[in-house]
């Protein structure tokens, strides 16, 4: 793929900003872990060798206990299977490094209460108030947060760009009316709406995403509107119009690439907004439904029990700090790399 020399320059510049560049690499690695979380943190085994055949239960359907010689038809408990095969022989089981699912009781049959980290049981960050592994919940909570963040960025960009560009390009009455609408819309209390909606409907990732996007796209329109206004007056747009290009072609092929730089610099910060919003909602109890793993829910549990279970808050807080800091570093670097002042020559 041939890149625009300007873009190459920007990428070079970004790479030279060490802090941001390495942050991006770490974020990428974390994302990769999150995408393949099932291989690292899971109650399903990676490999089972049983009665002469190999099986890989991580992905795919549940395997009933009966297939491994248990007397139940629900999903095999691979930790039990591992212990049994170790004792009796006849095969082996390789479990992921953290052998617990995010919704699973890590101490089955024992009292429900937060437990401190126990390396012997491979609860590296302890358990939460439901005997669930904190690390497992952090990892899957991170995945949910990232899905949410990407969805949020996508939604906000889609609405913000489409409406903002339209406002800038068409101007006139459309611009005037949409602006007034945005002013009114952004005055609706966001938190009330979320509380109201999530008490009426069953909250889900999509619903929350919808609500938060619905209240966040307005800011983006201002940048797109001004950007489009500015570009619209340029000669190349007039030229395109004379050549008979359609409105959508002019907007998406000619104007948008010229104002895209602004958009890119927003992205990491938008993702930070998304993650903090989701965490805040979960913390307040208006977020994702139980028992979806989420950071906000961990923080809520933890802050209610700071004295008896500090590891919950510490883990969630540390995870959040690390991820948000990395994103902020990436964001700073992107902004600096895309800063037009660096390359603008005033004549």
């Amino acid at each position: 793929m041939r890149l625009n020399p300007l873009t190459v320059k920007k990428i070079k510049r970004f790479k030279s900003l060490r802090r941001g560049y390495y942050s991006l690499i770490i974020m990428g690695a974390l994302l990769l872990v999150a995408v393949f979380a099932e291989l690292f943190v899971n109650n399903r085994a990676l490999v089972v060798y049983y009665e002469g055949s190999l099986r890989f239960p991580t992905y795919g359907s549940q395997i009933a206990g009966t297939e491994f010689g248990f007397d139940y038809s629900h999903e095999t408990n691979y930790r039990d299977l591992r212990d049994r095969l170790r004792a009796e022989g006849g095969g082996f089981v390789i479990m992921p490094p953290v052998p617990f699912g995010p919704q699973e009781d890590a101490y089955p049959g024992e009292f429900i209460r937060p437990r401190p980290p126990d390396f012997g049981n491979r609860n590296f960050l302890g358990t939460d108030t439901q005997n669930r592994d904190v690390l497992a919940r952090l990892v899957y909570g991170f995945r949910n947060a990232m899905i949410f963040a990407f969805g949020f960025v996508g939604g906000v960009y889609l609405l913000g760009i489409a409406i903002g560009c339209a406002m800038g390009y068409f101007g006139g009455w459309f611009d005037l009316i949409t602006q007034r609408f945005i002013e009114i819309w952004s005055n609706i209390p966001f938190l009330y709406t979320v509380i109201f909606v999530s008490s009426v409907f069953e909250p889900s990732l999509l619903l929350l995403l919808g609500i938060i996007v619905a209240f966040s796209w307005t800011g983006m329109t201002y940048y797109m509107r001004t950007g489009t206004f500015k570009e619209k007056a340029r000669e190349y747009v007039a030229a395109a119009q004379i050549l008979g290009a359609s409105t959508s072609r002019i907007i998406f092929h000619h104007i948008l690439p010229n104002i895209i730089a602004t958009l890119v610099t927003f992205m990491p910060f938008l993702m930070i907004t998304a993650i903090t919003s989701l965490t805040a909602l979960d913390f307040l109890g208006y977020g994702l439904p139980e028992p979806t793993p989420s950071w906000g829910e961990l923080l809520r549990q933890g802050t209610e029990r700071l004295k008896i279970a500090p590891w919950i808050t510490l883990s969630a807080f540390a995870a959040m700090t690390v991820v948000l800091t990395l994103m902020a570093f990436v964001g700073e670097a992107v902004r600096e790399a895309f800063d037009p002042k660096k390359f603008t020559i005033y004549e």
Binding site: L191, Y192, F215, S216, T218, G219, F266, F269, T273
Partner: peptide, 17 residues
Amino acid sequence: MMRTSVRFSLLTALAGI
């Protein structure tokens, strides 16, 4: 900025309360 707009909404909510 998006962040500002979210914060603004929160402020509005508080004012409402």
